[in-house]
C-alpha cells in the first residue's frame, strides 16, 4: 500500500518537474523574441522550414476536405431543399473548426515532429551543449526562433487552409453539383460573421502555441539517444494532437455558447 503511494508521489513529482521544465523553456522562448539584427535571419529560415514546407500538405488537404464537405453536405441538404445553405455550412465548418483543428493536427505531424527530431538530434550530437560552452544560449539561438516561427506560421496556414477549402467546396458545389453561384456566395456572406474569422484565428493562434511549445520542449527535453529521440518525436505528435482536440472543445464551449 505504502509502495503504491510512493509510486503515485513519484509520478506526480515527475509530472510536475516536467511541467516546470516546459514552463522554463516557454518563458525563455517568449522573452527571447527574435531581434532585428541577429534574430531575423534565423526566424526567416525557420518560417521557411516550418511554414513554407508545410504549404503543400495544407493546400492539398484543404482542397480535398472542402470538396468532401460540399459533397456530403449537398447530399444531406438537398433532401430538405436547403442546398442554398451549402455555402455557410462549409464556410462555418472550415472557419470555426476544421481550419484551425485540421491545420493544427497536420502541423503537429509535419512541422512539430520535424522540430522535435531536429532539436533532439542537436542535443544528442552535443550541438546544444557546445553552443552553451560557446556562451551562446541555445534557448535563444535554437528554441526561440523555432517557437516564434511556429506561432507565426500556423495561423497563416489555417487561413490558407480555410480559403482553399472554401474554394474546393465551390468547385464541387457550384461547378459540379450546380448550386447557384450567386446563392452560394451571398448566403455564405449573409451567415458568416467577421466574429467567426476572429474566433477561428484565436483558435489557430492557441493551437499554434501549444503545438510548437510541445514540439520544442519534447526535443529539448528528450533523452539524447536514438531511442529517446524517436520516443520524443512520437509523443510530441500524440500529445500535441490530444491537447489540440481537448483545447478545441474548451475554446468552442467558451466562444459559441
Amino acid at each position: 500500500m505504502i509502495k503504491r503511494f510512493g509510486q503515485l508521489g513519484h509520478t506526480t513529482l515527475e509530472l510536475l518537474a516536467g511541467l516546470g521544465r516546459a514552463l522554463i523553456i516557454l518563458l525563455s522562448a517568449i522573452t527571447h523574441m527574435p531581434n532585428i539584427r541577429k534574430g531575423y535571419p534565423l526566424f526567416v529560415k525557420q518560417v521557411y522550414s516550418v511554414g513554407v514546407l508545410s504549404l503543400i500538405i495544407i493546400i492539398v488537404s484543404g482542397l480535398f476536405i472542402g470538396m468532401v464537405l460540399a459533397l456530403q453536405g449537398h447530399g444531406v441538404l438537398i433532401d430538405y431543399g436547403a442546398e442554398a445553405s451549402l455555402g455557410p455550412m462549409v464556410a462555418l465548418s472550415l472557419l470555426r473548426e476544421l481550419g484551425p483543428v485540421v491545420t493544427a493536427l497536420l502541423f503537429a505531424g509535419r512541422a512539430g515532429s520535424a522540430l522535435t527530431a531536429e532539436i533532439g538530434l542537436m542535443k544528442a550530437t552535443e550541438q546544444l551543449s557546445s553552443m552553451e560552452m560557446m556562451a551562446v544560449d541555445p534557448l535563444r539561438r535554437v528554441i526561440a526562433p523555432r517557437f516564434w516561427a511556429g506561432l507565426f506560421c500556423m495561423p497563416l496556414l489555417a487561413a490558407i487552409f480555410s480559403m482553399v477549402g472554401i474554394f474546393g467546396s465551390h468547385l464541387v458545389g457550384v461547378v459540379w453539383l450546380g448550386v447557384d453561384q450567386g446563392t452560394f456566395w451571398s448566403v455564405m456572406q449573409g451567415d458568416v460573421d467577421f466574429a467567426d474569422i476572429v474566433n477561428g484565428t484565436i483558435k489557430a493562434v492557441s493551437f499554434a502555441f501549444v503545438v510548437t511549445w510541445i514540439a520544442v520542449f519534447k526535443g529539448y527535453d528528450c533523452v539524447p539517444t536514438s531511442e529517446g529521440i524517436s520516443r520524443a518525436t512520437t509523443s510530441s505528435v500524440v500529445q500535441a494532437s490530444l491537447v489540440v482536440l481537448g483545447l478545441d472543445f474548451i475554446l468552442t464551449a467558451i466562444m459559441f455558447t
Binding site: L121, M122, T125, E126, Q127, S129, S130, M133, M134
Partner: peptide, 12 residues
C-alpha cells in the same frame, strides 16, 4: 573557455 567535444559537435 572553449571545449572540443568528442563528436566535434559541429552545427550540421
Amino acid at each position: 573557455i572553449s571545449m572540443l567535444f568528442q563528436s566535434g559537435a559541429l552545427f550540421t
